[in-house]
């Protein structure tokens, strides 16, 4: 029996301006429950690729499907969790970790009125999963970069996503925090069975956890287990990769 993949891109082309292709003939299939790293040089099209996967951009040609539905018209959007590149607080207010994570329940809990008890419990669970219970009521901006990223991951988890997309989650985060973030994602992946797309120009921290590594440089130049990656490509951010 053919199982519908979580993500399916077929012969996708995309450009932000005419004549300037960012992605060319990209085909990619991600099965439900996979943990996939999407790597490649800066400007190689990684972020564009996941924006197409999430339906935020529409391909110039080709198809982008989420669970068999066109990504831009996906009917179960609340099952998508997204941590955007350089995720930071949208406002200037001193939002606490709990307030940030509670925003993750917005799509599930409806827009009107306060959160119900079950929603508040899910928020507390998400905070606990990323190990931020001690600082749950502290303003986010008083925490380290790594802790802030954990809070945003907890926000994405609070929505109980089936697909979690993290775009450069370790930018500006020290190596130790990168390692602990990777271990956290590995644990979440095995405990929750979430499909994870992890975008980064440096994938060293997650290399031992991911099942697949996809290198993007306008097209897909490698797709397979990290151990099969040719040695010369081990630093995909290099200009001559």
């Amino acid at each position: 029996m053919h199982v519908i993949p979580a993500v399916a891109l077929e012969h996708v082309d995309f450009g932000y301006a005419p004549g300037r292709r960012v992605l060319e003939d990209v085909s990619l299939e991600v099965r439900e429950g996979e943990f996939v790293a999407i790597a490649g040089p800066n400007g190689g099209g990684k972020t564009t690729l996941v924006r197409i996967v999430l339906g935020l951009e529409r391909p110039a040609s080709g198809t982008a499907l989420l669970y068999g539905e066109p990504a831009h018209r996906f009917s179960r959007r609340r099952t998508l969790g997204y941590l955007a590149q350089r995720a930071e607080l949208g406002g200037d207010a001193p939002a606490t970790v709990r307030e940030v994570v509670a925003a993750g329940r917005l799509a599930c809990a409806g827009l009107v009125g306060p959160l119900r008890r079950r929603d508040r419990e899910l928020v507390a669970e998400a905070i606990a999963r990323v190990g931020l219970e001690e600082v749950a009521d502290a303003p986010l901006r008083t925490l380290s970069g790594g802790m802030q990223q954990r809070a945003f991951i907890a926000k994405a988890l609070a929505g109980e996503p089936s697909v979690l997309v993290l775009d450069e989650p370790t930018t500006g985060v020290d190596v130790e925090s990168q390692e602990s973030l990777a271990a956290l994602l590995d644990r979440l992946h095995s405990e929750l069975g979430v499909t994870i797309l992890y975008v980064s120009h440096e994938f060293g921290a997650v290399e031992r956890f991911v099942q697949r590594l996809v290198l993007v440089r306008r097209g897909i130049v490698f797709d397979g287990p990290p151990r099969e990656l040719p040695h010369v490509w081990h630093d995909p951010s290099h200009a001559h990769a």
Partner: peptide, 13 residues
């Protein structure tokens, strides 16, 4: 919530 993360909220519908 929309202030905290507009793009994330948009993705979630």
């Amino acid at each position: 919530g929309a202030i905290v993360d507009e793009e994330g909220a948009r993705v979630a519908g």
